[in-house]
Amino acid sequence: MAKTTRFATLIILMALACGCAKRSLVALVPDPDGKSGSISVSNEAGSVAISTPYRATTIESAKQQPTAPENIGKKTLDRMFAEALSIQPARPLHFLLYFENNTTLTSDSVQLLPGIMAAIKERNSTDISIIGHTDTVGSKEYNSELSSNRASTVKKLLIEQGAEADAIRTTSHGKENLLIPTGDNVNEPRNRRVEVVVR
């Protein structure tokens, strides 16, 4: 803990001491779901990796290697990045709707529509993506059209329930983007789907 405080104080002192241009700090923090990955920070003088959250490296110039990562602590980072974090939008929400062999939603998926509408209203969303998919039964052309029709069907349903048409973008991937990998001409209900992304 003492080390954390010392490091934080050092950074603040250094920032005050030199009005130096472009000094940078890069810190790793956990994702909202609690996991954290890793980062590498590199320039011509060298590279450092950080894989432990709340550690940071500082970079003094393009010709100096990034410093060895040190624990800076959540508190200091929360303070330094308070303004940026205060405006951070919620991550987009993804929904999967499933279909019978045609453009009819399964009854389970119909029940998801109110939840999608609630998300659109709650986020005041003006940017909704609808992406249609099929399983591998039938030709490429047939599935391309079917996936497009599925996306349009969902768009129509959302508009009927109050979504703005010009907030919606539809695309379709035919049988090219399987959720469950299968061979050709395989009837797979989990691939007959439309993905809705609410931003």
Partner: peptide
């Protein structure tokens, strides 16, 4: 795959 904070003076 992660969350990074960056400060550049």
């Amino acid at each position: 795959g992660t969350h990074v904070l960056i400060q550049i003076n």
